[in-house]
Computed example of a mutant assay.
Amino acid sequence: MPHAGWQDFRFDGIGTSWEISTPVPLSPGQRSSVLAEVERYDSTWSRFREDSLVTRISVAPGQYELPREATGLAALYRQLYTLSGGAMTPLIGESLERLGYDPHYSLQPRGEAAPPPAWDTVLEWRGTSLRTTAPVVLDIGAAGKGQLVDLLAEQLRGHGVTDFFIDASGDLLHGGQEPVQVALEHPYDPGKAIGTVPLGSGALCASASNRRAWGDGLHHVLDGTTGAPVRTVVATWARARTAMEADALATALFLVPAEDLERYFSFSWLKVFSNGSAEYSAEFEGALFT
């Protein structure tokens, strides 16, 4: 619990565990509203549901109308796609499914790693309008959970709840001003921490290759230029104003030099490599354990 005496609302959504902490318990109506928004988002963007819009897009090419949050996703993904030379792409779902991270969670590869199609050959995404020229498997997991955190925060504020702490299994958003001390999970031992960081108002999101790993060295952070898992970086953290941006940048740090990202985004960061070394920005306040 981030603050003594705060009340927790725990639930599962989009395949992970959530916890919203507030000074006063959320009312039944507020809780129902939160759960309805989670269901709406999942029914649009999940590639693990047969009834989702993303699943329909994966079946047949055509023109699709997306909900309002698609505008922010499109702009952010396009910028990071360009900065990464195609390594970070919303089309990575096809490569993930090829390696076994499919809607049935088979975790059985059905071939060698392969890159997804290039954005401009199959996809035209402008705001809430999406047109495809072939069936494509969208996967907005690198930014989607963070965006849903922001949407729930927007909803809480709409209900007059301005002090809150949202924890979406490592994607954190603090709505209050009093800093909360947050532990940084050890990339090889979830029961340990490699350090702590104070989180004031804003977001802190993490990405780690151990979070969704299977088979022989397979995990969910793929390089879109090869379709293969990233090997050199094992964990990242990004602090930004919004959870969507922090979430996306945490993944981008696996694929793009931090100094390139800093030219376009205002954020602080920590990156841990497979050899045990770490790099971090001067603004990333906190303490790493030795």
Rank of each mutant, 00 (worst) to 15 (best):
V34I: 12
L288D: 04
E37M: 02
A4G: 14
P179Y: 07
G191W: 07
R131Y: 11
D102V: 11
A87S: 13
R78E: 07
T44N: 08
Y77Q: 03
L218V: 12
G276K: 01
Y264H: 13
S21Q: 13
R211D: 12
E39A: 13
L138G: 08
R131Q: 12
S95H: 03
G5D: 15
F254R: 02
D102Y: 09
L53A: 05
L130Q: 07
R56P: 01
A36M: 05
D223N: 15
S281T: 03
L173V: 05
V54W: 01
A282C: 01
T236L: 09
R126Y: 00
E178F: 00
E279M: 12
A203S: 08
A208S: 15
G224H: 04
Q108P: 00
Q155R: 15
R31T: 02
R212N: 08
S21M: 09
A203E: 01
L204T: 07
A228M: 07
L35Q: 05
D150V: 01
P23L: 10
G141L: 11
E124M: 00
G202K: 07
L222S: 07
A252L: 09
G15P: 03
S84I: 09
P116N: 04
S84Y: 07
D171Y: 01
P25D: 08
L83A: 13
S207P: 10
T226G: 10
G62S: 12
S43F: 02
P179S: 10
G276D: 01
Q177N: 07
L152D: 02
M1K: 13
S95E: 06
R68T: 08
G146V: 02
C205F: 15
P2I: 10
V161K: 04
A258E: 02
I166A: 07
A238I: 05
P90T: 03
D8W: 05
A168I: 05
V38D: 00
L66P: 10
E94N: 04
P2V: 11
G158H: 06
H174A: 12
T226S: 15
L53Y: 01
P67K: 00
D139R: 09
V59P: 00
S207K: 11
E279G: 09
G62K: 10
S268N: 09
A74Y: 00
R56T: 10
H159M: 10
Y41R: 00
G13T: 14
R131D: 12
A36E: 07
D167A: 14
G276C: 01
L199K: 04
T44V: 15
L99H: 02
E185H: 05
S46W: 01
V233D: 12
P116T: 04
P135F: 11
A142Y: 01
P229S: 05
M88L: 15
F9H: 06
V234H: 14
L199C: 03
F165Y: 13
I92A: 03
T71R: 10
Y188K: 05
R10F: 11
F11P: 08
G215V: 12
K271T: 14
Q177K: 13
A206W: 06
P117F: 04
T132D: 11
D163C: 10
P117L: 06
G5S: 12
K271G: 06
Q147F: 02
H186Y: 08
L184G: 09
S52A: 01
L172D: 07
L173A: 02
D139N: 13
